[in-house]
Design a protein around this nucleic acid. Sequence first.
DNA 1: GTTCCCATGTAACCCGTTACATGATTTT
DNA 2: AAAATCATGTAACGGGTTACATGGGAAC
Lengths: 204, 204
Amino acid sequence: VEGLSTTSLAILGLLSIRGMSGYELTALAEISVGHFWPMHRSLVYRELPRLEQAGYVSGTHVAQERLPDKRTYAVTPAGRTVLDAWLAGPGFGRARYRNEFLVKFFFASRMGPDRLRELLAEYRAALELELTELGAVAKKTEAIPGALLGRLAALHGVRTREALLGWIAEVEEALEADASGRGVIAGPVRMARPARTDPDEERR
Amino acid sequence: VEGLSTTSLAILGLLSIRGMSGYELTALAEISVGHFWPMHRSLVYRELPRLEQAGYVSGTHVAQERLPDKRTYAVTPAGRTVLDAWLAGPGFGRARYRNEFLVKFFFASRMGPDRLRELLAEYRAALELELTELGAVAKKTEAIPGALLGRLAALHGVRTREALLGWIAEVEEALEADASGRGVIAGPVRMARPARTDPDEERR
DNA sequence: GTTCCCATGTAACCCGTTACATGATTTT
DNA sequence: AAAATCATGTAACGGGTTACATGGGAAC
C-alpha cells in the first residue's frame, strides 16, 4: 500500500506467477504487462534487490556453467500480502499518454500540407504495425484457457489502435474540406485552472 | 534534430505562437499540448534557461509591481530553425502509454469477481470524466477559426476514450460468459518463456 | 573465423514529479 | 482576520533510459 511503485507491484505480480530471474522477468514483462506498463531491464534489476531488502521477495543465487550465474527471486508471504492489498484497494493513477506524433501534428501549421499528409501516413503505418503486433498477442492467447485477462488486455490496445486509424481518416477529410484555415490556437489564451470538480483523483 | 528533447521542442513550438513567461507557457501547455505531452512547471523552468543558453530563445527580465518579477522568452531565428527542422524531419518516438488500471486488471485473477466488476466501474468513470473534459476542449475550439489542428488533436483523445468505453462493455460480456461457462475467472497468461537452450537449468 | 546474439548484470545520466518558498490579492 | 489563490519561481528526490561490461554459443 505504502511506498511501492506500480512497477514494483507489477514485478511482484509477475513473480507471483512463478519465481524467476531478473532477465526472465524482463522478458516476460515485455510480452505481457509491458504493453501497458513498460519496464526496462535496468529498472527491474534495481527494484529486485529493493524488494528483497523490504522482505517482499527472496532471492537465491544460482550458479550456471555455460551461462553467467544468476539470481532467482520468489515472492514471500509478505509480498503476497502487499500485492493483494494493492489489488483489493481502490483507485489507480490516471493513464499517462505521451504522443510525440501529436506534438508535431499540433504544430503542423508550420509545415506544408504535403509534409502533413506524409506525417499522417507515417502515423498510420505505425498504428498498423502495433495493431498486427497486438492482434498476434490476442490471437496467441485464444487457445490458452487461462489467458482470458491477458487477451482482454491486449484487446484494450487493439481497440484504441483501431479507433485511431479511424481518426486518421477523419482528419484527412477535415483537412481536405478546410484547405485554407489551418493553424494553432491564435490570439491571447486565457489561463484556465484545472476544473476543481472532484477532490480526490490520484492516490498514493 | 540534435539533442533537443520533445519537451523542449514543444516549448519552442508554444513560444513560436507568442513570447511569454514560464508561468504563462505552463498554463498554455496545460490546455493544449499537455493533453498528449504533459509538462510540469518545474520542467519548463529548467528547460527555458537551457534553451536560452543554447541560443534558441532569448529571455527578458520584466519587472512587475503587484506581482513577482518575471522573465519572458521569445524564440530566436536559430530556435525557429531547429523547430522547423524537427517538424520537417521524419519520424517520431513511438507513443508512450502507461496504464495502471490495466496492470491491476491483468492480475485480476487474484481478486474476487465482485472487485473486478468494481474496478471496471472505476475505469469507466475515469474514462467518462476524461471524455467530457476532452469534449469540452474540442467544443470550445469549434468557434475559433485557426484552431482546426487543436480540435483534431483533442478528437484524437475523444476517439480513444470512446473506444475504451466500448471495450469495457466487451469485457463485461466476456467475463459474464466465462463465469457461466467455466465457473471461475481465468488466471493470468501463462506465457512461454524465451527459448531456453540451457539444459542444466533448474526445474520446479 | 569474425561477427553477431544470448544471458546476465552495473553505472551514469536525465527527465519528470513532489515539495518548498514568497509577497500580493481575493475570498470566506 | 484567516484562508485560499495568484504569479512567480527553486530544490530535492526518484523513476526510467542509455551506455557500459562480459564470456560463451550461433550464424555467416
